[in-house]
Simulated scan of single mutants.
Amino acid sequence: MNGYIVKDHITNKNIEVGDYTYYSGYYHEKHFEDHCVRYLSPDMDGVDKLKIGKFCSIGSGAIFIMAGNQGHKHDWITTYPFFYTPDLNENALDGFEKKGDTIVGNDVWIGTEAMIMPGVKISDGAVIGARAVVTKNVEPYTIVAGNPAKEIKRRFSQEEIQMLLEIKWWDLDINIIKKYIPLMCSNNIEEFLKMIKGEMR
């Protein structure tokens, strides 16, 4: 299976994916929601959701860990989830804690086999290195890598990042986006921002 648009293959009501976001699932026979999204039941209401924006690129084998702490409490004497174990749950307390929705912004690139932990927010334009383990929120247009993932650098200046966040190119009419694809496939951010601002007047 080669890369494909994720939205076209989502059946889990707890997963939301924006337009044009694709998964390059070359190495796996299963679809994104079956291989990449762990412990998120399609049948449960009120659970933490996975929300992914538009124009994201998700590398093969990226993993989204959901369902909070899955009943494991590190501040109890045992981390074992007795509450969820038949024959042992009669007097057990439920240690499950929600972590909140996992949110991936727009134009985010997630490298192959990266792992995103529950409740993390990855902001617009961020880049997640291959096999990174993301345990904390990632700022806009920031490159992170490692285990745990740490900031490597910002993709653009703070002023340029602010302007990109203001114009939200991913929300523009697709015909405007098509018009500027050649410019978007360059590093001429100054010209791109100028042209898009002109379109928005």
Results as ranks from 00 to 15, higher is better:
T11D: 09
N12Y: 01
N12S: 03
K13V: 11
N14P: 07
I15P: 06
G18H: 10
G18Q: 09
Y20D: 07
G25H: 11
Y26R: 13
Y26G: 09
H35V: 08
V37R: 01
R38W: 13
R38F: 07
L40R: 01
S41L: 12
D43F: 09
M44H: 06
V47S: 01
L50D: 08
K51I: 15
K51W: 04
G53F: 02
S57W: 12
S60P: 08
G61A: 11
I63T: 11
I63R: 15
G68K: 12
N69I: 01
N69C: 03
Q70C: 12
G71P: 01
K73L: 13
D75H: 05
I77Y: 12
I77D: 04
Y80C: 00
P81R: 13
P81N: 15
F82L: 15
F82T: 08
T85E: 14
N91F: 13
L93T: 10
F96T: 06
F96M: 10
K99M: 04
G100W: 12
G100T: 07
D101T: 05
I103T: 00
V108D: 00
W109C: 02
I110E: 07
I110D: 05
T112A: 10
M115I: 14
G119D: 09
I122N: 09
S123Q: 15
D124L: 14
D124S: 04
I128P: 02
I128D: 06
I128F: 12
A130R: 12
A130V: 14
V133E: 06
P140E: 05
Y141L: 02
Y141H: 05
V144G: 03
G146C: 09
G146S: 14
N147K: 07
K150N: 13
I152K: 11
K153L: 03
R154W: 03
R154S: 00
R155T: 04
E159A: 11
Q162L: 11
L164F: 06
I167D: 02
I167F: 03
W169Y: 11
W170M: 06
D173P: 11
I174P: 01
N175D: 11
I177M: 09
I177L: 14
I177Q: 03
K178V: 07
K179M: 13
C185P: 00
I189N: 02
E190N: 12
E190S: 12
K194Q: 08
K197S: 14
K197C: 09
M200N: 10
